[in-house]
Structure formats: structure tokens, C-alpha cells
Simulated assay, not measured.
Amino acid sequence: MLHLPHAGDFLVDLISYEEQKLWIRDPDDCLPRRFMNKEFNFTDSTFQLSDDYSLMDFTFFNCSSNVTWQYRLRPIPCLSSDLNQNYSVVAVWSDPPFPTPGVEWCEPISSVTVPFSITNTLYSVDRNAHIGLQWNTPSCGACVAKNGRCEFLKNTGLEVACYLPHQGGLSKFASYGLGFGVGIPGLLSVIGIVYMCKGRRRRNEDGRQSRNIELNNVAGWSSIVVMGLDGESIDKYPMTRIGDSGRLPDPNNNVCSICLSDYQPQDSLRTIPDCNHYFHANCIDSWLRMNATCPLCRKLPHHS
């Protein structure tokens, strides 16, 4: 339902955010009745009449059925009497290029200025007839046309920002994610080969596998590879669910650097408390089971 301050309430049939247009109709399916009673006024509204429409002067007449039949005048169904009775309401241009025959035998009701479209005349198509409106502010049409996400910058005012999908290159975080996505599987493959060749090192008497494997001079690497965390440790990391507004803890980080997908409303995020970097919960959970370090900064948990 859309309320226009000086025109009343209307039902919204369709909205095009790309064209910044919407189409409204009368809840009682009788737009001509609204027109006949008063002029259609957009004062104090953020909307204006669509470019597909124009304002024209019409006069409504009450005509007998004999006149409408004889002069081929088209009654407006929702304003006319039952077919068994004698009178019907018609609407004609107030200042037509040629006179409308027959209306001189009818009783004038009112003359008003109303929106008019060739595809939606007052004469016959009154049921489900609609009016096209458009708006200029806020302006999101260009953003929607590029498959972007248009959002208000503040809770007040009409200033908006457009968040576009990444095209023609990768963001910093996406580049990091791609590097990790390609490099980590390769590194793990090398670790697996060396691990199988050297055999499993045992540090204690009960035969538990060591959590740290030392690699020396493997493709120029000399480091300690830290194995992943258990489920109980991962569950202690904070979880956050993105609301319908799509607001993120860090507006500059809107891409999960593991799966390279944009964060969407209702997504669940998990944050690594030691560095405050966050990712999709299912992405980072899988990562942490294999490697305890943060995928972005490589920082180890303080308890590791």
C-alpha cells in the first residue's frame, strides 16, 4: 500500500528499481471514481507522474442508456448503473479536437485533470487500470542495472552507496584468498610426501602423533607447520549472523577471502579473536581443522 498525501491510498502492482518506476491501482479497482471526485495531486510526495503518462482534462457525464447506445459512447463499468437500469457514466476529453457527439444530451458531473495513457484509457479499461509513477531520489537505477547492491549510508537521509560485484580484477582480500587457495593445497601436498617418506615421528610413549612437523630445506622453506584445531576449540571462536541490512563488522571487508564470495544477509561469520579477521563460518571452520593460523595474517592462536 502506498499513501500519497493529497491523493489517498493505492495498491502497488509492480516496482522497477532499475527504471525507478512503480505502477499503482485503486484498491476498489475503480480509478475513474477517484478521478471524478478530485484531481490527482502529487504535492508533498517523492513521486511524480511517469514519462509514459500525461495530464489531460476530462469531463464526466451521466448519460441515458439510449444515448450511449445510439452514439457509441463507452460507459465506465465501475461507475455505471446496473445494465437493467437506464443511466451510465462516460468520460470524454474536455477540449477535444472534434466535438464528441451525444454528450449534449447528457448531464455533466465534473471536470478534472487526470493522468492519461494511451494503453490505459478511462473509457473502458477501469478494472485493474493503473498509473505509472517514478522517483529521482534516492537514485539506485544505475547501480541495480550493474547488478549492484544499493544501500542507505545512514539511518536518516536519502544518501546511498552502490556495492558492485568484483569485475575485471580481484580485490586485495580476493587476491589473498586466491593465493592461499592455490598455494596451501600445494604446500600440503609437499608436506604429505615428506611426511610419508620420513615416517611418523613419535614424541611420547603412548604413540600420539606430534602436532608439529619440522620441515627443513623443502623448496626453500624452513618453517613449522601447525596442524589444525579440534572442534571444541573452533566452537569457542565468536559467531556473528549478518542482518537483513547486510551491515558488516568491517565495511571495507565484504568478501570472504577463502571462498571469494561476497557476504550476503543472513550469512554466518566466525571471527578469529587474536586478529579480528572474519570469514564465512563454514569456510573458516574447514580451514581451522587443517591449519590453526589465520588465513590472512598467519597469526597463531595465543593458546597454540
Rank of each mutant, 00 (worst) to 15 (best):
P185L: 06
N216S: 13
H3M: 02
Q264T: 01
Q167F: 15
A174H: 01
L188F: 11
L164H: 07
Y278P: 00
E151P: 02
S223N: 09
S80C: 05
C256L: 02
H166Y: 08
N254I: 01
C297Q: 02
T156A: 08
S210Y: 01
I131S: 03
A142Y: 07
N120S: 15
P101I: 03
L133E: 09
G228S: 07
S65Q: 14
P165F: 15
H130I: 00
E19G: 08
W221N: 09
M196Y: 00
N62R: 15
L178F: 12
S124I: 13
N253P: 01
C259N: 11
C150I: 02
Q264I: 07
S54F: 05
E151C: 11
C256Q: 02
E151N: 05
G243T: 11
S45P: 00
S50A: 14
S80K: 00
R74T: 15
T113L: 11
D51Y: 03
N86S: 14
S80D: 13
H302S: 15
Y71K: 12
I224A: 04
S45E: 04
D28A: 11
Y263R: 10
Q48Y: 14
D206I: 14
D262A: 13
F173E: 13
S304G: 05
P251L: 08
C275M: 07
C30R: 02
Y87W: 08
L73M: 09
L55Y: 04
I184K: 13
V226S: 08
N120A: 14
F35M: 11
P295Q: 01
Y163D: 11
P165M: 11
L164D: 06
N147A: 10
V114N: 07
T293N: 04
C63N: 03
G199L: 08
L288W: 01
D206S: 09
N291L: 06
C283V: 13
T271E: 05
D95Q: 09
V190F: 10
Q209L: 14
D29C: 10
I15P: 00
P265S: 10
D9H: 07
C78A: 12
D244Y: 06
C294W: 12
E107C: 10
P249H: 08
F180W: 05
E205H: 12
Y17C: 01
T100H: 09
L14T: 12
A219N: 14
S189C: 11
I109F: 03
S124F: 09
F61I: 02
P96E: 09
G168H: 12
S139I: 00
Y17Q: 03
F40D: 04
S223G: 14
D82K: 15
P75C: 03
N120W: 02
V226K: 06
L122N: 04
G102E: 00
N136M: 07
S268G: 04
Q70V: 05
S210G: 10
E104A: 09
M227N: 12
Y17F: 12
A174K: 08
E205L: 15
L170N: 05
G207R: 13
L188G: 03
W221S: 04
N291D: 09
D44V: 02
S64F: 04
Q167G: 04
Y17L: 09
V190T: 11
S88G: 07
C294N: 02
M56K: 15
Y53S: 12
L83F: 12
G177K: 13
